[in-house]
Simulated assay, not measured.
Amino acid sequence: MLTIEKNLLNITDIYYEPVVKTLPRGVELLMQFPDATLHEVESHWKIPHLHGFEGSAEHWNQIKRNILIIGVKKSVSTRPNTRSSNFVAPSLANGCTMSCIYCYVPRRKGYANPITVFANIEQILRHIERHAAKQGVKTEPDQIDPEYWVYDIGENSDCSVDALLSNNVKDTIELFKRLPNAKATFATKYVNNDMLSYDPRGKARIRFSLMPAGISKILDVRTSPISERIAAINNFVDAGWEVHINFSPVVFYENWIKDYKLLLQEIDDTLHEKAKQQLKSEVIFLTHNDKLHEVNLQWHPKGESYIWHPEIQETKYSQTGGRNLRYKRNLKAELVDAFRTLLAAQLPYCEIRYIF
């Protein structure tokens, strides 16, 4: 039985697709929460009380804490990627119990978007194994990895939290340990010490997302404290994980450079030599969304005061037509240069894999 913090997840209601009861992982999940009220639904995408739930923002965190959805991943496919990984693997889950107010994932499925665990894990793993076999040996190093094809397994969820609910993540790491030419990666804002026992043998890269602690308390709602994430880096490196830092999102506000100096100093003071030698980072400046802004104003307006500033942001339309905001080009160029300079001065051993 997996150990779950009740203040993070206290499942009272489970919505599930009928086929879930025929799959081992689905049965395991249903048995794990015997006191939960069960609701059979046609599709994990079509739940009237949840899909399009931006109108009930006052229940935002309650939904994320109390509701679990169990479904089947219908489109099991892998697509190319260019920054954090070579490929994006089929999702093991969708949604999150944490409430980072800038996150793009909630916009895809009802905004509050509690966790949906996909029960057809065997099908997903077979697909990944076949896809990796087709790639063959990686003959040319790139900024992603010098040796392995890297698959992001957590694009639409936080794998560290997903691993509290099922063995989907553990099973996936076991697969990559067997694959001769590939490794897994995911970003996280939660420290799950149970994952120290996974023994990935260098075939999994965890990217701890970090920002200054003060602003994290406002923007990273229901996540592990920044100091706890930093302290975990040593432990995960010692346990056979490759550990990088995901400085994301970088938010521009008064005294941001001062706060990042303190953050980088804490990293340097905390990490042991082995962790420093393998450390790399990725840096992603804030992108926001107009509709998510309107929802956030209903439940967390203080956070919006840090990330919604149209006077210094410009519109960027997504492929689906959504209106996103990012820092204006000239300002962003200055911010990128400032961050590069600061990181080089304080963590000269930490290579930036990419920054934008």
Rank of each mutant, 00 (worst) to 15 (best):
25 R>K: 04
51 H>N: 13
87 F>K: 15
99 S>Y: 00
115 I>D: 04
23 L>N: 13
46 K>S: 14
111 Y>W: 15
117 V>C: 09
49 H>L: 05
28 E>H: 08
55 G>V: 06
52 G>F: 06
85 S>N: 05
54 E>K: 10
120 N>E: 08
58 E>C: 01
84 S>P: 00
51 H>I: 15
90 P>Q: 08
71 G>R: 05
29 L>A: 03
42 E>K: 08
40 E>H: 03
66 N>E: 15
59 H>N: 10
75 S>P: 00
62 Q>N: 10
115 I>V: 11
29 L>C: 02
49 H>I: 14
67 I>A: 08
117 V>E: 07
59 H>Q: 13
91 S>H: 12
79 R>C: 05
112 A>I: 12
62 Q>M: 04
99 S>A: 11
23 L>Y: 10
33 F>R: 04
45 W>P: 02
46 K>Q: 14
76 V>W: 13
32 Q>M: 07
59 H>V: 10
25 R>G: 03
115 I>H: 07
18 P>K: 02
23 L>A: 01
101 I>D: 01
72 V>H: 10
79 R>M: 06
51 H>M: 13
75 S>D: 14
119 A>L: 06
114 P>V: 09
84 S>Y: 12
112 A>P: 07
61 N>S: 12
21 K>Q: 11
62 Q>D: 13
19 V>E: 13
35 D>M: 14
102 Y>F: 14
23 L>V: 00
105 V>F: 05
114 P>H: 12
43 S>H: 08
97 T>A: 14
44 H>N: 13
31 M>A: 12
86 N>F: 07
56 S>I: 15
41 V>R: 00
58 E>H: 04
116 T>G: 09
119 A>I: 04
75 S>V: 11
110 G>E: 02
61 N>C: 08
36 A>D: 08
59 H>M: 11
113 N>C: 09
29 L>Q: 03
49 H>D: 13
58 E>R: 03
36 A>Q: 04
82 T>I: 10
28 E>Q: 13
86 N>T: 14
70 I>W: 03
122 E>V: 02
96 C>D: 04
31 M>T: 01
109 K>G: 14
49 H>E: 14
52 G>R: 11
107 R>G: 07
93 A>T: 11
117 V>G: 06
58 E>D: 06
25 R>P: 00
57 A>N: 04
70 I>K: 01
57 A>Q: 06
32 Q>I: 08
36 A>P: 04
86 N>H: 15
97 T>Q: 05
67 I>V: 15
115 I>S: 07
38 L>M: 09
56 S>L: 14
113 N>V: 02
50 L>W: 05
110 G>A: 08
38 L>F: 02
93 A>R: 07
77 S>V: 12
57 A>H: 03
37 T>Q: 11
78 T>N: 04
97 T>V: 12
41 V>M: 01
22 T>C: 03
98 M>D: 01
99 S>Q: 03
91 S>C: 11
95 G>Q: 07
53 F>M: 10
47 I>T: 03
93 A>S: 14
111 Y>A: 08
91 S>L: 04
